[in-house]
Write a protein that binds this DNA or RNA. Structure first.
Lengths: 193, 193
DNA sequence: GACAATCTAGGTCAATTGTCCTAGAGCGGT
DNA sequence: ACCGCTCTAGGACAATTGACCTAGATTGTC
Protein backbone atom coordinates (compact mmCIF):
# COMPACT_ATOMS: atom_id res chain seq x y z
CA UNK A 1 0.00 0.00 0.00
CA UNK A 2 1.29 3.43 -0.85
CA UNK A 3 -0.47 5.38 1.85
CA UNK A 4 -0.99 4.05 5.32
CA UNK A 5 -4.25 4.83 7.00
CA UNK A 6 -4.50 5.94 10.60
CA UNK A 7 -5.22 3.09 12.96
CA UNK A 8 -8.54 4.58 13.98
CA UNK A 9 -9.73 4.75 10.39
CA UNK A 10 -8.79 1.15 9.69
CA UNK A 11 -10.46 -0.03 12.85
CA UNK A 12 -13.57 1.92 11.96
CA UNK A 13 -13.55 0.46 8.48
CA UNK A 14 -13.43 -3.06 9.90
CA UNK A 15 -16.25 -2.41 12.36
CA UNK A 16 -18.37 -0.74 9.70
CA UNK A 17 -18.01 -3.67 7.31
CA UNK A 18 -18.59 -6.19 10.10
CA UNK A 19 -21.69 -4.26 11.19
CA UNK A 20 -23.16 -4.52 7.73
CA UNK A 21 -22.22 -8.17 7.22
CA UNK A 22 -23.39 -9.27 10.67
CA UNK A 23 -26.71 -7.71 9.77
CA UNK A 24 -27.00 -9.11 6.26
CA UNK A 25 -25.66 -12.63 6.91
CA UNK A 26 -25.54 -13.01 10.67
CA UNK A 27 -22.58 -13.13 13.03
CA UNK A 28 -21.62 -16.81 12.71
CA UNK A 29 -22.15 -16.88 8.97
CA UNK A 30 -19.77 -13.95 8.46
CA UNK A 31 -16.13 -14.95 8.09
CA UNK A 32 -12.92 -12.96 8.23
CA UNK A 33 -12.64 -13.63 4.52
CA UNK A 34 -15.94 -11.81 3.97
CA UNK A 35 -14.81 -8.79 5.95
CA UNK A 36 -11.49 -8.91 4.12
CA UNK A 37 -13.23 -8.88 0.75
CA UNK A 38 -15.42 -5.93 1.65
CA UNK A 39 -12.73 -3.78 3.23
CA UNK A 40 -9.82 -4.80 1.02
CA UNK A 41 -7.74 -5.35 4.16
CA UNK A 42 -5.76 -8.50 4.80
CA UNK A 43 -7.10 -11.06 7.24
CA UNK A 44 -3.97 -10.91 9.35
CA UNK A 45 -4.42 -7.19 9.82
CA UNK A 46 -7.60 -7.71 11.83
CA UNK A 47 -5.60 -9.25 14.63
CA UNK A 48 -3.66 -6.09 15.18
CA UNK A 49 -6.88 -4.23 15.96
CA UNK A 50 -8.85 -7.08 17.56
CA UNK A 51 -7.72 -10.13 19.47
CA UNK A 52 -10.67 -12.32 18.44
CA UNK A 53 -13.79 -12.31 16.29
CA UNK A 54 -15.83 -11.84 19.45
CA UNK A 55 -13.99 -8.59 20.05
CA UNK A 56 -15.16 -7.35 16.66
CA UNK A 57 -18.69 -8.28 17.68
CA UNK A 58 -18.34 -6.22 20.86
CA UNK A 59 -17.16 -3.28 18.78
CA UNK A 60 -20.11 -3.70 16.41
CA UNK A 61 -22.56 -3.71 19.31
CA UNK A 62 -20.88 -0.64 20.74
CA UNK A 63 -21.08 1.05 17.34
CA UNK A 64 -24.77 0.28 17.11
CA UNK A 65 -25.31 1.60 20.61
CA UNK A 66 -23.70 4.90 19.66
CA UNK A 67 -25.58 5.03 16.38
CA UNK A 68 -28.98 4.28 17.87
CA UNK A 69 -28.38 6.68 20.75
CA UNK A 70 -27.75 9.45 18.24
CA UNK A 71 -30.86 8.42 16.34
CA UNK A 72 -32.94 8.70 19.49
CA UNK A 73 -31.39 12.03 20.37
CA UNK A 74 -32.43 13.36 16.96
CA UNK A 75 -36.05 12.62 17.85
CA UNK A 76 -36.16 14.94 20.82
CA UNK A 77 -38.43 17.59 19.27
CA UNK A 78 -42.23 17.47 19.30
CA UNK A 79 -44.77 15.76 21.52
CA UNK A 80 -44.15 12.33 23.10
CA UNK A 81 -46.63 10.69 20.73
CA UNK A 82 -44.81 12.18 17.74
CA UNK A 83 -41.52 10.85 19.03
CA UNK A 84 -42.96 7.36 19.36
CA UNK A 85 -44.30 7.73 15.85
CA UNK A 86 -40.77 8.36 14.61
CA UNK A 87 -39.71 5.09 16.15
CA UNK A 88 -42.56 3.28 14.44
CA UNK A 89 -41.64 4.89 11.13
CA UNK A 90 -38.25 3.19 11.16
CA UNK A 91 -40.20 0.30 9.66
CA UNK A 92 -40.93 2.47 6.63
CA UNK A 93 -37.62 4.31 6.43
CA UNK A 94 -35.63 1.07 6.49
CA UNK A 95 -38.29 -0.98 4.74
CA UNK A 96 -36.04 -2.30 1.97
CA UNK A 97 -33.35 -3.56 4.31
CA UNK A 98 -35.85 -4.95 6.78
CA UNK A 99 -37.64 -6.89 4.05
CA UNK A 100 -34.29 -8.36 3.01
CA UNK A 101 -32.64 -9.04 6.37
CA UNK A 102 -35.12 -8.39 9.17
CA UNK A 103 -34.44 -6.14 12.15
CA UNK A 104 -30.69 -5.76 12.80
CA UNK A 105 -31.21 -5.76 16.56
CA UNK A 106 -33.81 -8.50 16.81
CA UNK A 107 -31.97 -10.94 14.57
CA UNK A 108 -28.69 -10.36 16.40
CA UNK A 109 -30.26 -10.82 19.84
CA UNK A 110 -31.96 -14.07 18.88
CA UNK A 111 -28.82 -15.44 17.24
CA UNK A 112 -26.57 -14.63 20.19
CA UNK A 113 -29.13 -15.74 22.76
CA UNK A 114 -29.62 -19.03 20.98
CA UNK A 115 -25.91 -19.81 20.81
CA UNK A 116 -25.41 -18.76 24.41
CA UNK A 117 -22.82 -16.25 23.24
CA UNK A 118 -21.05 -14.17 25.87
CA UNK A 119 -22.07 -10.96 24.10
CA UNK A 120 -25.77 -11.83 24.22
CA UNK A 121 -26.49 -9.54 27.21
CA UNK A 122 -24.74 -6.68 25.47
CA UNK A 123 -26.95 -7.12 22.42
CA UNK A 124 -30.02 -7.13 24.64
CA UNK A 125 -28.77 -3.77 25.84
CA UNK A 126 -29.50 -2.46 22.36
CA UNK A 127 -33.13 -3.34 22.85
CA UNK A 128 -32.96 -1.88 26.33
CA UNK A 129 -31.98 1.44 24.82
CA UNK A 130 -35.23 1.69 22.86
CA UNK A 131 -37.24 0.10 25.66
CA UNK A 132 -36.14 2.70 28.18
CA UNK A 133 -36.60 5.55 25.74
CA UNK A 134 -40.10 4.38 24.78
CA UNK A 135 -40.97 3.96 28.44
CA UNK A 136 -40.01 7.56 29.10
CA UNK A 137 -42.18 8.70 26.20
CA UNK A 138 -45.19 6.85 27.57
CA UNK A 139 -44.52 8.32 31.00
CA UNK A 140 -44.51 11.77 29.42
CA UNK A 141 -47.76 10.76 27.78
CA UNK A 142 -49.26 10.28 31.23
CA UNK A 143 -49.09 6.50 31.34
CA UNK A 144 -46.60 6.08 34.17
CA UNK A 145 -48.43 3.03 35.54
CA UNK A 146 -47.88 0.79 32.54
CA UNK A 147 -45.24 2.74 30.62
CA UNK A 148 -42.83 -0.18 30.40
CA UNK A 149 -45.53 -2.61 29.29
CA UNK A 150 -46.56 -0.16 26.57
CA UNK A 151 -42.93 0.22 25.52
CA UNK A 152 -42.59 -3.55 25.26
CA UNK A 153 -45.80 -3.67 23.27
CA UNK A 154 -44.44 -1.24 20.68
CA UNK A 155 -41.15 -3.15 20.51
CA UNK A 156 -43.07 -6.41 20.16
CA UNK A 157 -45.12 -5.18 17.23
CA UNK A 158 -42.08 -3.71 15.52
CA UNK A 159 -40.32 -7.04 15.80
CA UNK A 160 -43.32 -8.93 14.54
CA UNK A 161 -43.66 -6.65 11.53
CA UNK A 162 -39.94 -6.93 10.77
CA UNK A 163 -40.02 -10.73 10.93
CA UNK A 164 -43.04 -11.07 8.68
CA UNK A 165 -41.72 -8.40 6.33
CA UNK A 166 -38.53 -10.41 5.90
CA UNK A 167 -40.59 -13.55 5.38
CA UNK A 168 -43.36 -12.41 3.01
CA UNK A 169 -41.74 -9.25 1.59
CA UNK A 170 -45.12 -7.57 1.42
CA UNK A 171 -44.99 -3.77 1.34
CA UNK A 172 -48.73 -3.39 1.82
CA UNK A 173 -48.58 -5.45 4.99
CA UNK A 174 -45.89 -3.21 6.43
CA UNK A 175 -47.79 -0.06 5.55
CA UNK A 176 -51.00 -1.46 7.01
CA UNK A 177 -49.41 -2.52 10.30
CA UNK A 178 -47.59 0.79 10.69
CA UNK A 179 -50.91 2.59 10.29
CA UNK A 180 -52.57 0.22 12.72
CA UNK A 181 -49.84 0.71 15.29
CA UNK A 182 -50.17 4.48 14.97
CA UNK A 183 -53.92 4.20 15.45
CA UNK A 184 -53.28 2.17 18.57
CA UNK A 185 -50.81 4.79 19.74
CA UNK A 186 -53.32 7.60 19.26
CA UNK A 187 -55.73 5.73 21.54
CA UNK A 188 -53.17 5.50 24.35
CA UNK A 189 -53.22 9.12 25.48
CA UNK A 190 -55.34 9.25 28.64
CA UNK A 191 -56.44 12.84 27.97
CA UNK A 192 -56.96 14.80 24.77
CA UNK A 193 -55.43 18.29 24.56
CA UNK B 1 -24.08 -52.46 15.71
CA UNK B 2 -25.80 -55.64 16.74
CA UNK B 3 -29.25 -54.83 15.46
CA UNK B 4 -29.84 -52.92 12.29
CA UNK B 5 -32.64 -50.45 12.30
CA UNK B 6 -35.06 -50.20 9.43
CA UNK B 7 -34.08 -47.51 6.95
CA UNK B 8 -37.21 -45.52 7.66
CA UNK B 9 -36.45 -45.44 11.38
CA UNK B 10 -32.89 -44.28 10.83
CA UNK B 11 -34.00 -41.63 8.40
CA UNK B 12 -36.65 -40.50 10.84
CA UNK B 13 -34.10 -40.39 13.62
CA UNK B 14 -31.85 -38.15 11.54
CA UNK B 15 -34.68 -35.80 10.60
CA UNK B 16 -35.93 -35.65 14.17
CA UNK B 17 -32.49 -34.77 15.53
CA UNK B 18 -31.89 -32.27 12.72
CA UNK B 19 -35.30 -30.69 13.39
CA UNK B 20 -34.41 -30.14 17.02
CA UNK B 21 -30.89 -28.89 16.30
CA UNK B 22 -31.94 -26.59 13.45
CA UNK B 23 -34.37 -25.06 15.92
CA UNK B 24 -32.01 -24.76 18.85
CA UNK B 25 -28.85 -23.66 17.00
CA UNK B 26 -30.00 -22.74 13.50
CA UNK B 27 -29.45 -24.49 10.19
CA UNK B 28 -25.98 -23.22 9.31
CA UNK B 29 -24.68 -23.55 12.84
CA UNK B 30 -25.66 -27.22 13.00
CA UNK B 31 -23.01 -29.60 11.68
CA UNK B 32 -23.16 -33.26 10.70
CA UNK B 33 -21.03 -33.90 13.75
CA UNK B 34 -23.76 -32.44 15.93
CA UNK B 35 -26.42 -34.65 14.38
CA UNK B 36 -24.04 -37.59 14.68
CA UNK B 37 -23.54 -36.95 18.39
CA UNK B 38 -27.26 -36.72 19.08
CA UNK B 39 -28.31 -39.76 17.04
CA UNK B 40 -25.25 -41.92 17.65
CA UNK B 41 -25.08 -42.56 13.92
CA UNK B 42 -21.94 -42.18 11.86
CA UNK B 43 -21.45 -39.14 9.69
CA UNK B 44 -21.02 -41.24 6.59
CA UNK B 45 -24.35 -42.91 7.14
CA UNK B 46 -26.21 -39.67 6.51
CA UNK B 47 -25.18 -39.78 2.89
CA UNK B 48 -27.00 -42.99 2.30
CA UNK B 49 -30.28 -41.37 3.31
CA UNK B 50 -29.61 -37.85 2.01
CA UNK B 51 -27.44 -36.56 -0.78
CA UNK B 52 -26.69 -33.21 0.84
CA UNK B 53 -27.30 -31.21 3.98
CA UNK B 54 -29.88 -29.20 2.07
CA UNK B 55 -31.82 -32.40 1.52
CA UNK B 56 -31.99 -32.92 5.27
CA UNK B 57 -33.32 -29.37 5.56
CA UNK B 58 -36.04 -30.16 3.03
CA UNK B 59 -36.98 -33.23 5.05
CA UNK B 60 -37.08 -31.16 8.24
CA UNK B 61 -39.38 -28.59 6.62
CA UNK B 62 -41.59 -31.39 5.33
CA UNK B 63 -41.67 -32.92 8.80
CA UNK B 64 -42.69 -29.61 10.32
CA UNK B 65 -45.39 -29.19 7.69
CA UNK B 66 -46.85 -32.57 8.61
CA UNK B 67 -46.52 -31.86 12.32
CA UNK B 68 -48.13 -28.41 12.14
CA UNK B 69 -50.89 -29.67 9.88
CA UNK B 70 -51.78 -32.31 12.47
CA UNK B 71 -51.66 -29.65 15.17
CA UNK B 72 -54.10 -27.50 13.24
CA UNK B 73 -56.36 -30.45 12.55
CA UNK B 74 -56.55 -31.14 16.28
CA UNK B 75 -58.00 -27.65 16.78
CA UNK B 76 -61.07 -28.26 14.67
CA UNK B 77 -63.58 -28.34 17.51
CA UNK B 78 -65.27 -25.27 18.98
CA UNK B 79 -65.99 -21.80 17.65
CA UNK B 80 -63.64 -19.97 15.25
CA UNK B 81 -62.57 -17.59 18.00
CA UNK B 82 -61.71 -20.50 20.26
CA UNK B 83 -59.61 -22.05 17.53
CA UNK B 84 -57.68 -18.84 17.05
CA UNK B 85 -57.21 -18.76 20.80
CA UNK B 86 -55.56 -22.16 20.64
CA UNK B 87 -53.10 -20.78 18.14
CA UNK B 88 -52.32 -17.86 20.42
CA UNK B 89 -51.85 -20.19 23.34
CA UNK B 90 -48.92 -21.90 21.61
CA UNK B 91 -46.95 -19.03 23.08
CA UNK B 92 -47.81 -20.33 26.56
CA UNK B 93 -47.63 -24.06 25.82
CA UNK B 94 -44.16 -23.76 24.27
CA UNK B 95 -43.11 -20.85 26.44
CA UNK B 96 -39.92 -22.46 27.75
CA UNK B 97 -38.58 -23.36 24.32
CA UNK B 98 -39.64 -20.05 22.81
CA UNK B 99 -37.87 -18.11 25.55
CA UNK B 100 -34.73 -20.14 24.83
CA UNK B 101 -34.74 -20.32 21.03
CA UNK B 102 -37.52 -18.14 19.65
CA UNK B 103 -40.16 -19.35 17.21
CA UNK B 104 -39.00 -22.39 15.21
CA UNK B 105 -40.72 -21.16 12.07
CA UNK B 106 -39.88 -17.48 12.29
CA UNK B 107 -36.20 -18.01 13.03
CA UNK B 108 -35.84 -20.54 10.21
CA UNK B 109 -37.58 -18.31 7.67
CA UNK B 110 -35.43 -15.31 8.51
CA UNK B 111 -32.22 -17.34 8.42
CA UNK B 112 -32.99 -18.95 5.08
CA UNK B 113 -34.35 -15.75 3.55
CA UNK B 114 -31.25 -13.84 4.63
CA UNK B 115 -28.85 -16.36 3.14
CA UNK B 116 -30.90 -16.59 -0.05
CA UNK B 117 -31.18 -20.33 0.51
CA UNK B 118 -33.04 -22.38 -2.09
CA UNK B 119 -35.33 -23.80 0.60
CA UNK B 120 -36.44 -20.34 1.76
CA UNK B 121 -39.77 -20.44 -0.13
CA UNK B 122 -40.52 -23.86 1.35
CA UNK B 123 -39.98 -22.51 4.86
CA UNK B 124 -42.29 -19.60 4.09
CA UNK B 125 -44.86 -22.26 3.24
CA UNK B 126 -44.83 -23.19 6.92
CA UNK B 127 -46.02 -19.69 7.72
CA UNK B 128 -48.49 -19.94 4.87
CA UNK B 129 -50.04 -22.94 6.55
CA UNK B 130 -50.99 -20.93 9.62
CA UNK B 131 -51.77 -17.83 7.61
CA UNK B 132 -54.33 -19.66 5.47
CA UNK B 133 -55.82 -21.44 8.44
CA UNK B 134 -56.13 -18.23 10.44
CA UNK B 135 -57.68 -16.50 7.43
CA UNK B 136 -60.33 -19.20 7.22
CA UNK B 137 -61.10 -18.77 10.92
CA UNK B 138 -61.58 -15.04 10.51
CA UNK B 139 -63.78 -15.68 7.49
CA UNK B 140 -65.88 -18.00 9.64
CA UNK B 141 -65.95 -15.23 12.17
CA UNK B 142 -67.65 -13.02 9.59
CA UNK B 143 -64.63 -10.98 8.60
CA UNK B 144 -64.26 -12.09 5.00
CA UNK B 145 -63.25 -8.59 3.85
CA UNK B 146 -60.04 -8.36 5.84
CA UNK B 147 -59.58 -11.98 6.93
CA UNK B 148 -56.06 -12.26 5.54
CA UNK B 149 -54.97 -8.97 7.07
CA UNK B 150 -56.30 -10.13 10.44
CA UNK B 151 -54.48 -13.44 10.02
CA UNK B 152 -51.24 -11.60 9.31
CA UNK B 153 -51.85 -9.41 12.33
CA UNK B 154 -52.10 -12.44 14.62
CA UNK B 155 -49.00 -13.97 13.06
CA UNK B 156 -47.17 -10.68 13.43
CA UNK B 157 -47.96 -10.38 17.12
CA UNK B 158 -47.00 -13.98 17.76
CA UNK B 159 -43.67 -13.40 16.09
CA UNK B 160 -43.09 -10.22 18.02
CA UNK B 161 -43.84 -11.89 21.32
CA UNK B 162 -41.57 -14.83 20.46
CA UNK B 163 -38.68 -12.56 19.53
CA UNK B 164 -38.92 -10.44 22.67
CA UNK B 165 -39.48 -13.54 24.81
CA UNK B 166 -36.22 -14.99 23.48
CA UNK B 167 -34.52 -11.68 24.10
CA UNK B 168 -35.74 -10.65 27.54
CA UNK B 169 -36.93 -14.04 28.86
CA UNK B 170 -39.78 -12.38 30.71
CA UNK B 171 -42.69 -14.70 31.55
CA UNK B 172 -44.92 -11.86 32.69
CA UNK B 173 -44.48 -10.11 29.38
CA UNK B 174 -45.56 -13.20 27.48
CA UNK B 175 -48.60 -13.70 29.70
CA UNK B 176 -49.57 -10.06 29.37
CA UNK B 177 -49.30 -10.01 25.59
CA UNK B 178 -51.21 -13.26 25.23
CA UNK B 179 -54.02 -11.76 27.28
CA UNK B 180 -53.89 -8.57 25.27
CA UNK B 181 -54.03 -10.45 21.99
CA UNK B 182 -57.04 -12.43 23.22
CA UNK B 183 -58.76 -9.20 24.22
CA UNK B 184 -58.11 -7.86 20.75
CA UNK B 185 -59.47 -11.09 19.27
CA UNK B 186 -62.67 -10.83 21.30
CA UNK B 187 -63.24 -7.37 19.83
CA UNK B 188 -62.97 -8.65 16.25
CA UNK B 189 -66.30 -10.48 16.02
CA UNK B 190 -68.68 -8.21 14.09
CA UNK B 191 -71.74 -9.63 15.82
CA UNK B 192 -72.28 -11.19 19.25
CA UNK B 193 -74.12 -14.55 19.36
C1' DG C 1 -27.22 -71.93 4.21
C1' DA C 2 -26.11 -69.01 0.10
C1' DC C 3 -26.92 -64.88 -2.37
C1' DA C 4 -28.04 -60.17 -3.58
C1' DA C 5 -29.86 -55.99 -1.87
C1' DT C 6 -29.92 -52.89 1.78
C1' DC C 7 -27.80 -50.37 5.20
C1' DT C 8 -23.85 -48.72 8.16
C1' DA C 9 -19.18 -47.30 9.93
C1' DG C 10 -15.18 -45.08 9.40
C1' DG C 11 -11.74 -43.13 6.68
C1' DT C 12 -10.39 -39.60 3.29
C1' DC C 13 -10.82 -35.42 0.67
C1' DA C 14 -10.48 -30.42 -0.45
C1' DA C 15 -12.16 -26.24 1.27
C1' DT C 16 -12.87 -23.04 4.84
C1' DT C 17 -12.65 -21.54 9.47
C1' DG C 18 -10.49 -18.49 13.42
C1' DT C 19 -6.04 -17.77 15.04
C1' DC C 20 -1.21 -16.82 15.10
C1' DC C 21 3.42 -15.42 13.36
C1' DT C 22 6.80 -12.76 11.08
C1' DA C 23 8.95 -9.83 7.68
C1' DG C 24 8.75 -5.46 6.31
C1' DA C 25 6.51 -1.03 4.84
C1' DG C 26 5.21 3.58 6.42
C1' DC C 27 5.58 7.12 9.82
C1' DG C 28 7.24 10.71 13.26
C1' DG C 29 11.07 12.41 15.86
C1' DT C 30 15.95 13.30 16.10
C1' DA D 1 19.81 10.04 7.10
C1' DC D 2 18.72 7.36 10.68
C1' DC D 3 15.93 4.97 14.16
C1' DG D 4 12.02 3.10 16.77
C1' DC D 5 7.23 2.61 16.81
C1' DT D 6 2.96 1.77 14.47
C1' DC D 7 0.67 -0.62 11.21
C1' DT D 8 0.00 -4.04 7.36
C1' DA D 9 0.32 -8.14 4.28
C1' DG D 10 0.64 -12.70 3.53
C1' DG D 11 1.52 -17.10 4.83
C1' DA D 12 1.15 -21.05 8.12
C1' DC D 13 -1.37 -23.39 11.64
C1' DA D 14 -4.72 -26.89 13.58
C1' DA D 15 -9.47 -27.67 13.64
C1' DT D 16 -13.79 -28.21 11.49
C1' DT D 17 -16.74 -28.28 7.67
C1' DG D 18 -19.81 -30.85 3.92
C1' DA D 19 -19.00 -34.33 0.81
C1' DC D 20 -17.43 -38.72 -0.97
C1' DC D 21 -15.69 -43.56 -0.97
C1' DT D 22 -15.42 -48.26 0.16
C1' DA D 23 -15.32 -52.37 2.88
C1' DG D 24 -18.20 -54.95 5.46
C1' DA D 25 -22.16 -55.96 8.49
C1' DT D 26 -27.11 -56.95 8.42
C1' DT D 27 -31.28 -58.31 6.26
C1' DG D 28 -34.84 -60.67 3.50
C1' DT D 29 -35.47 -64.21 -0.16
C1' DC D 30 -34.68 -68.27 -2.24
Amino acid sequence: MEFQMSAADTRGQIVEAADRLFYERGFEATSFGDISSVTGLSRGNFYYHFKTKDEILEAVIERRLVDRSAMIRAWEGGQPADRISRFIEILLVNQTKIMAYGCPIGTLCVELSRLGHAAAPASVGLFGLFRDWLRRQFEALGRSEDADALAMHVLMRSQGVATLAATFKDEDFVRREVDDLKTWLAAQAPVAP
